[in-house]
């Protein structure tokens, strides 16, 4: 009996040791990633780097126009995707209500499944789609507009799923109370659903911004590579992520500058995510009081 217990304890220790070792390996890999970028890229980061135009295919100079192009792409994507996703989420919310007809409920179920599927489509496939539809069929060419529209298509499923979850936060009892007070649907949304849902709605949108910033493959054939400051929505322009890829793969001697751009991109994305999470946690704590 005692021996058995000993054997079990040894086994316990072995499993723990292996698990700790694996975890350390993951932490080390992440440390290496951060360390590498910080050591090699931080030196270049400065205000001048942010505003100066790239020179010599990006080997020197800054990322001036690229930052602007990135912002425009993300803004276009948000402007296209947020209203559509919000409305689609409202549809799901309404169809979830019991009095909705059978057809509506079926449509909602189908939509949920389709959103799951579209949300898992590789981003490069969205790139192909955007290239065929926006650049060619619509004749927008490789442009900010085409890139933003492609990003918007990618964001719609993710945003709708996030918004749908946010709307479900409103308690059924309060919805019933609103109905009993003879509230219209619009009033119920505004006074009952939104007060519960808005932190998560906002968090969903902010996380979508982070995803859009990180996106590269969908932009390769839709917004193009041009590294000048864009002057119109139909200009081709490159995002920060495409800049990293181009410097790393196509520009000999571009590695050092790719480090800076990658670090900048990473910092932006991580800062946005952390801010969204932090704000959400803070709101939760406040609501919990």
């Amino acid at each position: 009996m005692r021996e058995l217990a000993m054997g079990r304890r040894a086994m316990e220790r072995a499993v723990a040791a292996v698990a700790w070792a694996g975890t350390l390996l993951v932490v080390a890999a992440f440390g290496a990633l951060l360390g590498e970028l910080l050591v090699r890229g931080a030196g270049e980061l400065s205000w001048r780097y942010l505003v100066e135009a790239p020179r010599d295919a990006g080997r020197s100079g800054g990322v001036g126009g690229i930052v602007v192009a990135t912002g425009v792409l993300v803004a276009l994507a948000l402007a296209g995707a947020v209203p559509l996703a919000l409305l689609a989420a409202l549809f799901l919310d309404e169809a979830g209500a019991a009095q909705a007809g059978r057809a509506r409920r079926r449509l909602a179920a189908a939509l949920r499944r389709v959103l799951d599927v579209v949300g898992s489509v590789p981003s490069i496939v969205f790139g192909l789609f955007g290239n065929a539809l926006f650049c060619r069929a619509f004749g927008w060419g490789e442009s900010l507009l085409a890139g933003g529209a492609t990003l918007a298509c990618m964001m719609v499923p993710l945003l709708t799923i996030a918004f749908d979850e946010a709307l479900q936060r409103a308690p059924a009892a309060e919805r019933a109370a609103a109905a009993a007070c003879a509230f219209s649907r619009a009033a119920t949304l505004r006074h009952v659903v939104l007060p519960h849902a808005w932190p998560l709605l906002l968090a969903g949108a902010v996380l979508a911004v982070a995803r859009a910033l990180a996106e590269t493959a969908a932009l390769l054939f839709t917004s193009g590579y041009v590294d000048r400051m864009p002057t119109s929505l139909l200009d081709s322009a490159r995002s920060l992520s495409v800049h990293v890829w181009d410097l790393a793969l196509n520009v000999a001697g571009g590695e050092a500058r790719a480090c800076s751009a990658a670090l900048l991109l990473l910092l932006l994305v991580v800062a946005i995510e952390a801010a969204a999470r932090g704000a959400l946690a803070w709101l939760r704590r406040r609501a919990g009081r």
């Binding site: 559509l84 996703a85 409305l87 579209v118 789609f129 539809l133 069929a137």
Partner: peptide, 30 residues
């Protein structure tokens, strides 16, 4: 309120249809 509700209902149904069309359009264009 009723007109608003109706408009909301129509707009959200249209958005849902658009989101459904996204997958169809994606597959169709490819």
């Amino acid at each position: 309120p009723r007109r608003l509700d109706r408009a909301l209902q129509l707009a959200s149904a249209a958005a849902a249809a658009a989101a459904l069309l996204l997958l169809l359009g994606l597959a169709a264009f490819l």
